[in-house]
Design a protein around this nucleic acid. Structure first.
Lengths: 335, 335
DNA sequence: CTGAAAGCGCTTACAG
DNA sequence: CTGAAAGCGCTTACAG
């Protein structure tokens, strides 16, 4: 030791204000010299906080989730929190395991659920756990948890409207996420926006132009192949996300259809590669959603009252999207 | 309680063999009924193991690292380990913080370093920490840690050879990673392979055809723009990774050059979107590298002796790569 | 501003 | 196969 009790060492190392400057200096010096590092398990046990946050994503390899996690990781580590990553990987079993109270209880100080579908049973489990949390891009909110997201219905409406404005009338939609056995809300909302835009233009959504598949590249390819198999191809396709649009690109090329001359194509995201591919899209701020959600989760934990605590803030925070027109959308060919 | 001591509960819950079946049944039933979950901090403190692994990647948003992390996460959770994610994000400061003994000591049972550059000082720090670890895709190994990787020199040689075989002679190379202030070995090895292939064909590597930039999409664009600015464009480009190749695609298109008619292009990775883009590449098994590394890290922790412990296994495990020819490479135009 | 004491909730030898 | 006891290494009221 450097002449003080362990209690004082503990206080000095954590920077509590109730330590004299001289003492703190001595403690820090001794710690430095002894290469002393506190045992996280011990301080967690004694202190009651774990200093860790669980972050749950469907698939870390998809653009949106990678960007969200990157932003969250950065903020969390800046605040001194560890990030426990959970990748659902499309397995219902993983979701179960993770959401089981034993895996969250006393293990983390908070939870971030990104686009994670929740059943009523999961909701009550989470609620009785009484753990702080936040959801991102999630339809079913958790009572008492803030939520950050975009307006998926509006984004889809704008994408579809863009195609309508160009003069398209036969507009297909590809979407769906069999990765989740449960309803994944983003794609349901996006379909709704698509249908609303069509109806607003006096069109009737045609079920044969609406194909479900995986919410990723391969899914986009499969959905588009199915679409083309149905005959009488659409003049435009609205894909529920950019990765599906990219998959569509392959299928269209293989079918000998050119984009945008034969078929226009638009997605949602503004994926890092959408520019390279010249893909028109609705850009959504992924990093900002992650960062903001992390902040809303952490701030209260650090004792900072968020303004929202003063009132009812069951309202989700909606971040803006933006139409980005590139080379994949054009007026339909005059027949 | 269900009639037994806490010691027995502990043993029953962990499935130790020294508990009678009847007792175990009673304990499990009681735990179930009480919604009892052990406190991880307490068992860590008492037991000395944390049940967590730190995984360090340069950028989770890049294809390779996302796929590696996904595979690692899956394996780790199957083994009951938590995964603490560290994303360096190109900040030297993050590397420092993470590698500081205090942030690893007693916090995790093991470390996986993916493509993380290490200075001599870092090496000694890690060695004195005496923590089990494994490196993936890393040039500078850590003494005593296994390493999983591909042969970057060979991969680059094969890519370059493919271009040479097609008849190209003016073959450029784009590479580099300013994200890392330290030498990031993969790109150095890949340059070496490129140069070796040229020399083996009797060609002299031309420095004006070798441009460094970021190891990502934007870097590929910048490097290619710089290349074209130098005049007398090459007939082929070997990009150090697919993401750089994708960036190159944009620059070439903007310059009015067609791929492969005017310029052939090949990368390394077999990125999820390389197929969509018709990009020729050298495929590397990313998930397998992650999974295998996780296994090599975890198996000894669970008391399983790996065969390699019996001998000196300072040799890295090299996984195979494979040339994938798509539409971005073709013979040069006859002038 | 600092110290003594209790306690966080487990696991681990040690007996039996 | 099971229990009593000690201890893991901190933090937290409680005094002073």
């Amino acid at each position: 030791m450097a002449g003080v009790s362990t209690a004082t060492v503990s206080r000095a190392l954590r920077g509590l204000p109730t330590v004299s400057a001289a003492t703190r200096r001595r403690v820090l010096a001794a710690a430095e010299q002894l290469q002393y590092a506190v045992s996280p398990s011990a301080s967690r046990l004694a202190g009651g906080r774990t200093g860790a946050i669980a972050v749950v994503v469907p698939r870390i390899t998809r653009w949106f989730f990678g960007v969200v996690v990157e932003a969250v990781e950065d903020f969390l580590h800046q605040c001194g929190y560890d990030l426990l990553l959970h990748n659902l990987g499309g397995r219902e079993q993983n979701r179960q395991r993770l959401l089981h109270p034993a895996n969250l209880h006393k293990r983390v100080d908070g939870v971030m659920l990104v686009a994670t579908p929740l059943r009523p049973a999961d909701l009550t489990a989470l609620t009785t756990l009484d753990l702080p949390g936040v959801t991102v891009s999630s339809g079913t909110g958790v009572p008492g948890w803030p939520c950050v997201r975009i307006d998926d219905v509006a984004a889809a409406r704008i994408a579809t409207r863009h195609l309508l404005d160009l003069g398209h009338r036969r507009i297909a939609h590809i979407s769906g996420d069999p990765d989740d056995e449960l309803a994944f809300t983003a794609h349901l909302d996006r379909r709704r926006g698509y249908q609303e835009a069509l109806r607003a233009a006096g069109l009737w959504p045609d079920p044969t132009l609406d194909v479900e598949s995986g919410f990723d590249i391969a899914g986009g390819t499969r959905a588009t192949e199915e679409l083309l198999r149905r005959g009488d191809p659409p003049t435009a396709i609205f894909a529920a996300c950019d990765e599906m649009a990219m998959g569509a690109l392959t299928a269209l090329r293989d079918a000998g259809l050119r984009v945008p001359q034969d078929v226009s194509l638009i997605g949602i995201d503004d994926h890092a590669l959408s520019g390279v591919l010249g893909l028109s899209t609705i850009a959504q701020p992924a990093a900002e959603q992650g960062r903001l959600a992390a902040e809303m989760l952490i701030d209260p934990l650090r004792g900072r009252t968020r303004a929202s605590d003063c009132g009812a803030d069951e309202l989700p925070v909606i971040l803006p999207t933006r139409l980005v027109v590139r080379d994949s959308t054009a007026p339909p060919r005059a027949n």
